[in-house]
Design a protein around this nucleic acid. Structure first.
Length: 434
RNA sequence: GCGCCGUUAGCUCAGUUGGUUAGAGCAGGGGACUUUUAAUCCCAAGGUCCUGGGUUCGAAUCCCAGACGGCGCACCA
């Protein structure tokens, strides 16, 4: 048999050498003797450094101590390691080295390797799920003349030949909806978005996002699909729908708890936001409840403040919060029974938002008014309010079928599935200073 | 951006109230050993104590500034 891999341990014994060779499937011991391997081979093995990549040919035997080993007939140096590997027993713990030189982290830790295998399985599980339901994967511009589809500041870059400013996308939403207008009917894109913001345990400036759009579906259909998709990804990555989380367990088995946002806010904060329709009144109620409420924040930001301060941390088991205020949702369709609300939900799990979905606004006139509201926010100093996209409005004017759309944060999903509590643990090369 | 904490050998870490020449294990170098399991034993080597100032007779140690990192906050509809 032939094995090739990294030399991770060696026990020399004069005219006998034991060498542990590791590849992605695990570690196997090679056992070399002078009698069998000869002088040149044995001195090559004896002189190899930990970290070298070697190839070994031999027959499988069991040693006196009972370990399955390869009795070596020939050995080959495939690549020398000029620098030593991380300490085998203590491992690599310095976070800076772990992230900046992730190859050392992977080398040192089977756990870290398996982490990224699970990430890959979760992602392929998501793709398989969507493909099997008739979605097609599309690719839309990452460099955009106008950014939109989310509230965030963009990265700005420059196209030399055309002499113009371009933005790295903050979302794929507006292009994917153009695909729906064109009749592709079920589309998704799984790729990087870029938001010019700080880092935290759940934020990285570039991150992986899934967006799906399905014609003739609404947000209830999307909620049902999300539950099935996430549980399918969990099965793919971990083998089950119940995953460990911070010493407890999260059960992703559908259906998930559903609750109206305004009811959930009232449950945890005691505040009925619809009873406080103006910022001053809501701000006073929040402060009376002991919550932070900035003086300048508009009503929508205040509602979001209650959500993130009072409600989000309590949402450990998967929960779907339904029916958001219109002001928070410029691309979502109004509810017919209450025009202050839109047909939108966000899914929370492990105390984090993992998904955001709505029945897409397909009325171009209403959409134009929503853009105008954003322009007013922008004029009032909200630099995260996105600019109006006339080309997108033109597309809507050609007629977009009623559509259910979804955004799912893939990095956060992987955190949830693998019991990792920092986004840096699920991104191979996370953003670092300099 | 703000606050707290951290940075000593390739890796993991000690380092006394500020006191002579900054230590250990592993890795790496030399040697012994033909069934080891973090093999063992002997020898030698290995340092910008993050950087720059300052205090002091004397600084890894105290002070200031900076870099980088971690955590928290802010930001993130």
């Amino acid at each position: 048999m032939i094995i090739a891999g990294r030399l991770v341990a060696r026990r020399g014994q004069g005219k006998t050498v034991f060498a542990d060779v590791e590849d992605r499937s695990g570690t196997v011991q090679a056992w070399a003797t002078l009698d069998r391997l000869g002088d040149d081979g044995l001195s090559l093995l004896a002189g190899a450094h930990l970290g070298d990549i070697i190839g070994v040919r031999g027959t499988v035997v069991r040693t006196r101590r009972g370990e399955i080993s390869v009795a070596v007939d020939s050995v080959e140096m495939l690549a020398k390691a000029l620098r030593p590997p991380p300490d085998r027993h203590a491992g690599l713990t310095d976070p800076e080295t772990r992230y900046r030189q992730r190859y050392l982290d992977l080398m040192a830790s089977e756990d870290v390797r398996s982490q990224f295998v699970m990430r890959a399985r979760a992602i392929s599980g998501v793709r398989r799920f969507l493909d099997s339901r008739g979605f097609i994967e599309v690719e839309t511009p990452a460099l955009q003349p106008i950014y939109g589809g989310a509230a965030a500041r963009p990265f700005v870059t420059h196209h030399n030949e055309q002499g113009r400013e371009l933005f790295l996308r903050i979302a794929t939403e507006l292009y994917l909806k153009r695909c729906i207008v064109g009749g592709l009917e079920k589309v998704y894109e799984l790729g990087k978005d870029f938001r010019n913001e700080g880092v935290s345990f759940k934020h990285n400036p570039e991150f992986t996002m899934l967006e799906t759009y399905e014609a003739y579906a609404d947000y209830e259909d999307v909620a049902a699909m999300l539950e099935e998709m996430v549980s399918a990804a969990a099965v793919e990555a971990t083998g089950g729908m119940k995953v460990p989380w911070k010493g407890g367990e999260i059960d992703l088995t559908p259906p998930w708890r559903r609750v109206r946002l305004t009811d959930a806010l009232e449950e945890t904060s005691g505040i009925d936001v619809l009873a406080h329709p103006d910022p001053d009144s809501l701000r006073a109620a929040m402060r009376a409840a002991g919550l932070d409420a900035p003086d300048t924040a508009p009503w929508s930001k205040l509602v979001d403040g209650i959500l993130s301060q009072s409600l989000e941390p309590t949402l450990i088991q998967p929960t779907i919060l339904l029916d958001y205020p219109l002001e928070l949702s410029p691309f979502a369709k109004r509810r017919e029974d209450d025009p202050r609300l839109v047909e939108r939900f966000e899914a929370f799990c492990a105390g984090m938002e993992i998904a955001n979905a709505f029945s897409e606004l397909n009325d171009p006139d209403d959409q134009r008014e929503r853009f105008a509201m954003l322009q007013a926010d922008r004029a009032a100093g909200d630099d995260e309010a996105q600019p109006a996209d006339e080309d997108f409005l033109t597309a809507l004017e050609h007629g977009m079928p009623p559509t259910g759309g979804l955004g799912l944060g893939i990095d956060r999903l992987v955190m949830l599935l693998t019991d990792r509590h920092s986004i840096r643990e699920v991104i191979l090369f996370p953003a670092m200073r300099n």
